[in-house]
Design a protein around this nucleic acid. Structure first.
Lengths: 248, 248
DNA sequence: CGCACTCTTGAGCCGGATCAATGTACGTGG
DNA sequence: CCACGTACATTGATCCGGCTCAAGAGTGCG
């Protein structure tokens, strides 16, 4: 039987990849059938509990990890324990890209997560042979750079209320195009993590959420389940920025 | 007469490129002689005054700009005028990389700057044909991502004193390996810009510099000329972080 | 039930913002 | 030359948003 894939490779998809949304939307979508098979031979699917570390700041980073489902947080630490979450990775992101051999951040699962990981050198070998893969990874790095800079604006210039609004809008948008899930969803982080993402304390995060609830912009079924009642208000609060960057 | 270049191309360097430090260390170092000639045909050298805009936030970005000498600041604006400098680009950086057609930031010269610019599509065409160029640009994007995240830690979790120390160390390191210039140098930004980079006000910046001066960590010949008297103290103040990221 | 963990709420404080005045350097025109 | 204006920086006085410290509430689990 022949594969219906657009490439001429007659082989079917590796079993691991059937129905995988990374295959459809992530880095893997840039892989030809041959490279997909090569990569999947070294790939390992696993279900990680929340709080599992993928790599620690300062350690050598030997594996790439595709997010299939769930959320990973990238954190930077200071010696005295202060910490800053510098990125949230939702599926189908690739985690583990870094400029040097040693990771400048720690990567921990923030929720239970389904991942697909493989050795660093395997993907890099493939990337060096396939311009499409390199281009795809490059493109993703540029998008992450945009996100990081958007967040720098929030950290440096927004007040607590605006930071919370920005965060809620970001999480809402990370959910599928499904407008239902953009209106009602679970927070992938607890209060401590939200604080470490926004450069605030947990008390301030809690108080600001209470304010948003009292002004009827959002509702909270419990501390993790948010319903956005007035998305327009939230966006106005979050984002006075001139360019509606990434507004799609 | 034959070129002494490592490639087999018999042509000499384009006149524009002779002695250019971007050729030696920047993206251009990844260009083969053929691509170098192609690019230089579309390139234009110019000396820009301080405050000149290269591209504005939200506008289409049609040109790449190589920094030959001087400093460019990348700024994000909010509608009410608040702004955040999200990156400083020193020579031999390439300015203009962006994930989408529209720039998410404004790029302005912070000092007088010698630059070499060319149309976006010319470099992208070359990159699509030359893996070495794409890889080089990818690598630079990853390094900028590291820097952005390092700065997020500063913006979110460091106090005013630590932010200033971090900034001074960063500028010192941006100067050549020459230890003389790391100890005594000019600030590429005025107080307002430093404040917009650090997420502070000019008054706080000024006061913290005064404090550093009074505690004899630095000296100021005038508001722009800094001498670092105690670099060890400065580094301790700036960077309690576990991993001495990019410590080389 | 008690214990652990997370979240919320209150009271008071402090670091950095705000508002205001002054200082300094440098040009420009009388 | 000085008088004046402009841009930038410093310094002081006061204020307030978010932090700190502390207590209580909600939830889940052995």
């Amino acid at each position: 039987m022949m594969s219906r894939d657009s490439t001429s490779d007659p082989r079917p998809l590796p079993g691991l990849c059937v129905g995988c949304n990374v295959r459809a939307n992530g880095v893997c979508s840039a892989l030809g059938m041959d490279h997909l098979h090569e990569l999947s031979r070294h790939a390992k699917r696993s279900l990680l509990p929340s709080g599992k570390e993928l790599v620690m700041q300062g350690e050598a980073n030997e594996t790439y990890t595709n997010m299939v489902h769930g959320v990973v947080k990238l954190t930077k630490y200071m010696a005295d324990g202060r910490q800053q979450i510098v990125s949230l990775k939702f599926a189908p992101s690739l985690v583990g890209k870094c400029a040097h051999r040693e990771s400048a951040v720690s990567a921990l699962t923030a929720t239970e997560a389904q991942v697909c990981s493989f050795p660093r050198d395997v993907l890099e070998m493939i990337a060096s042979k396939s311009p499409a893969v390199e281009t795809r990874m490059h493109q993703q790095a540029l998008m992450e750079l945009d996100q990081a800079r958007e967040w720098m604006l929030a950290l440096g210039r927004k007040n607590a209320q605006e930071k919370l609004a920005t965060f809620l809008v970001m999480v809402a948008r990370s959910n599928s195009r499904n407008s239902q899930m953009r209106q009602q969803f679970q927070l992938p982080l607890n209060r401590t993590e939200i604080a470490d993402f926004l450069g605030l304390t947990i008390e301030t995060v809690s108080r600001q959420l209470t304010r948003l609830r009292q002004s009827n912009v959002i509702s909270l079924r419990d501390s993790r389940h948010v319903t956005i009642n007035d998305s327009r208000a939230l966006e106005l609060m979050s984002d006075h920025s001139l360019a509606q960057t990434l507004s799609h």
